[in-house]
């Protein structure tokens, strides 16, 4: 077993060179390079965490914006609906008043027309009466040779007309 057989001859060399090379490993690699590697890892982790936080903040901001937009949108919609309802109401009121005015005018015209018709009928009736009186007078004069006074004839005509 060379480990024991050569122990006396080689242990000092083994220990010395191990200390030299492990020392180099520890001070150059362990102390010098490893912290930098780990720093890079930490940097990356930090960057990732920061990026994630930024993304989250951006999302929150977007959510907020959307919420605000929604509120505004709802307000706008409500306002628009109010305007539409108001316009509808106004239009309805207007048309109603117009209709009323037209109705009034029509009623007035109708009433006027009725009055005129009544007048015309009265006038016509009167004329018919007077014609009938004259005709009655004439007929009586011609048939009976009796002169009938106008009031008497009028009276007779009226009687006959009222009897139909």
């Amino acid at each position: 077993m060379p480990q024991i057989a050569q122990l006396a001859d080689t242990w000092s060399s083994q220990v010395f060179w191990l200390l030299v090379f492990f020392g180099i490993t520890f001070f150059v690699i362990g102390r010098g390079m490893v912290p930098k590697v780990m720093e890079t890892v930490a940097q990356r982790d930090g960057q990732i965490a920061a990026d994630l936080a930024a993304a989250k903040a951006a999302r929150d901001a977007a959510d907020e914006q959307e919420e605000a937009w929604r509120v505004r949108e709802n307000e706008n919609r409500a306002a628009a609906q109010a305007i539409v309802a108001k316009a509808k109401d106004e239009a309805a009121a207007k048309s109603e008043s117009k209709l009323k005015a037209a109705q009034t005018r029509l009623d007035k015209k109708l009433a006027e027309a009725e009055t005129r018709i009544a007048e015309a009928r009265n006038a016509a009736l009167t004329e018919v009466e007077s014609v009938a009186v004259e005709a009655a007078q004439d007929i009586v004069t011609r048939l009976a040779g009796v002169k009938v006074t106008k009031p008497a004839a009028t009276k007779a005509v009226k009687e006959a007309m009222s009897h139909g």
């Binding site: 001859d9 080689t10 000092s12 060399s13 083994q14 010395f16 060179w17």
Partner: peptide, 8 residues
């Protein structure tokens, strides 16, 4: 002795 050996 600190001879440079195959181990070193």
């Amino acid at each position: 002795n600190i001879a440079f050996t195959n181990s070193a």
